[in-house]
Amino acid sequence: MISTNYYIILSAILFTIGALGVLIRRNPLVIFMSIELMLNAANLAFVAFGRSWEIAKGEAFFNGQIFVFFVIAVAAAEVAVGLALIVEIFKTKKNINIDEMNSLKG
């Protein structure tokens, strides 16, 4: 049986990779993928904690898993809106480099 700690460490590593991806990459598609990585890192942590709780209590308890389903649904919706925006931006600018989209500034 693998200890919960390993799952959490894996989740942290995945989250860090995702966050760095968001900060470093300039292609919005890659940024979206990095965001997905962060969300799934969180999902992994939910599930790991949920199972750990279940073992400690000794009874069926699905709260962490249910939360993961919500996150997956919201992530799907978010990607749908984000991709639509990217398509529209590409249509007008013929370019999707995120650093060129800086007209909204003080």
């Binding site: 968001v22 900060l23 995120i98 800086n102 500034k105 003080g106």
Partner: peptide, 18 residues
Amino acid sequence: TIRKAQNGFVRSYALAVM
């Protein structure tokens, strides 16, 4: 003074959040 911080680069905002 502060308006300079809002530079329009999404990645710098993300960095600030981080």
